[in-house]
Design a protein around this nucleic acid. Structure first.
Lengths: 345, 345
DNA sequence: CTGTTAGCGCTTTCAT
DNA sequence: ATGAAAGCGCTAACAG
């Protein structure tokens, strides 16, 4: 393929002029620019990204760091990021921190970022001190999604508010016996989302003078199978809830399935509500609190681009709105069985 | 940060030696190598990827081209690819071809690949002649997944076989009135998977002397909502099937939900089977034909790395196994209603 | 407005 | 086994 030299020769100008003309810098006469552009087009010239990166110090690539990839939320966010970045002629370099074996996670290292990317977007991951220091040291602008770190820019929803809306919905329906799936497992003890949602669940019940027995607050690995497995004991127990609030739609779908397996009809015998508005939730009729995940990715991408262009651009903390979406999985509680009600803390 | 010069100075050798020593080339004495490695470690030296790319012509980055990202299949494959590549110290540059507006798709262009990546992995996408020529011209090794293109390496399953297994399962259960969701829409008329599965559905019925009325073969956008919407007419029609075979689990889940909405119990009134073994299928009790998607990504990554190292490495066509997984969504047909049976073509 | 000229940091002959 | 030196292709001063 042709290089900048070929174009310079063809257009009868210097390489510097070619570089300026093609990058749209000023101080190039319209005629010259036209000639250069034409020569470049004819030669199918495209600047070598590695060469310009080396010379300019900028790569036009941003690292997108994820704890794992094969989850709806992450894949969707990344899709949003990608679309935002490509408008600005930037690319996504994927950094998947999921380890080989279960429960492990890779650590962000110097060699993943150094001279490789211009900025970083971190998805719902708690970086440790070392990793944070690394990014700081490299001087990379960063935007986080779904989890605040330091004073870095962040795009997120109000997790407490989302959960409050979910809980109030079932409470307003008349439920008083409600269980929760999505307690905070050790593995994500440092993530804000599980914590905030779990906390808001308890608080919102308390706010109405209600409580929930500890065995009705179920820790979960945040998967559908896990939730289905773990809710079973509660559904088959002597006194069972009339509603289950799950911290995510994936878990909520697991709960719905578990209920059916136990012979409980949803929502007649058991109401189920989630948070997220997973792709499948609409089809499966799950009531949920929707967040616009694609948009969050988009916003994060835009925010990063701003910081890239303007060193002094303000860091942002965008809190995106959430919205209750009522579908078939929630209804008022069945009339009978008032006796088994439980309301301690 | 430190450069190769700093290391050379610290170790008292030339930069050439540092380069050789650190990359594990031979013709470096063990002592020298040790000194270099130590100096590099102390200085936290990591070679600048852009500089070595420019000098060597190789980037250690591979483009992963996807038609869209936020779908379980694609996200999962990519996860597999990523894990394979990182073992070989290579990275994933995401190229999402999904356009801004519905139904459009971006075209693979020179500037996305040129001097940017060492190879390409194409996921379930039919590239047009221009795009194929581009890759050919750039001399990039490529591996496709789920869709054969030219004589390029490919990792896939036998789609016809997968569908045959699904259909035979419901037939063996005793069903004779079976509908299909996943006909080939125009948008994917050039993709092998939809075609092969649809074809195998019809063929497998025929093989047992059965048929399926045209209105029971439903085209779909391959989403759960779409399938749920489109199956409704059939489920509420005068004569309805006792089983539905969907070309993907996502659609199958949509069908299950639609059936319940129509007051049909699954599997008592209607059996449903899919293909893929989506993450949620186990939790939701969907019978399916499983493929190991993660593994396909892994294999594709490995195959590409082989071709990268050894120019002459044989191109491969790996056909991964599939397996019937019977869960709660399929059962023998209800006894009555024999009268409405339909068996034309 | 345009050309000249140093690099950017590494790899890779070619000598030694 | 090691060093010297010529690039890789582009950007960014600095002149003019």
């Amino acid at each position: 393929m042709s290089t900048i030299n070929d174009v310079a020769r063809a257009a009868g100008v210097s390489v510097a002029t070619v570089s300026r003309a093609l990058r749209g810098l000023d101080r190039v006469s319209p005629q010259t620019r036209a000639r250069v552009v034409q020569a470049a087009t004819e030669l199918h010239y495209v600047a070598s990204p590695t060469a310009s990166s080396l010379a300019s110090g900028r790569t036009k690539v941003v690292a997108v760091v994820v704890p794992f990839l094969a989850r709806w939320f992450f894949a969707t966010v990344i899709s949003g990021i990608e679309k935002a970045l490509r408008r600005h002629d930037h690319h996504v370099l994927l950094i998947d921190l999921e380890g080989e074996s279960f429960g492990t996670r890779l650590h962000l290292s110097h060699s993943m970022l150094w001279k490789r990317v211009d900025g970083v977007i971190v998805l719902a991951t708690a970086l440790d001190e070392q990793e944070q220091a690394l990014i700081e040291r490299l001087g990379l602008p960063v935007v986080t999604i779904g989890h605040r770190i330091r004073d870095w820019s962040c795009v997120r929803i109000d997790d407490k508010e989302a959960m409050r809306i979910a809980v109030r919905h079932v409470l307003d329906l008349g439920h008083t016996d409600v269980a929760y799936v999505g307690g905070v497992p050790d593995a994500s003890a440092d993530l804000q989302t599980p914590q905030d949602r779990a906390r808001a669940f308890a608080d919102t019940l308390a706010e109405r003078g209600l409580g929930c027995p500890p065995e009705w607050v179920i820790e979960s690995d945040w998967t559908a199978v896990g939730a289905a497995r773990d809710i079973m004991a509660v559904l088959n127990g002597p006194s069972r809830p009339t509603a289950v609030v799950a911290a995510s739609d994936e878990m909520a779908l697991g709960v719905m399935a578990a209920a059916r397996r136990s012979g409980l009809a949803v929502p007649q015998d058991l109401s189920v509500i989630g948070v997220d508005d997973h792709v499948l939730s609409e089809a499966l009729g799950l009531t949920t609190v929707r967040q616009d995940v694609l948009c969050q990715g988009h916003r994060a991408g835009e925010a990063l681009m701003r910081q890239l262009v303007d060193e002094a651009a303000a860091t942002v903390d965008e809190v995106m709105p959430v919205q209750l979406v009522v579908r078939e999985s929630t209804a008022p509680p069945p009339k009978k069985r008032g006796g088994t009600r439980v309301t301690n803390t």
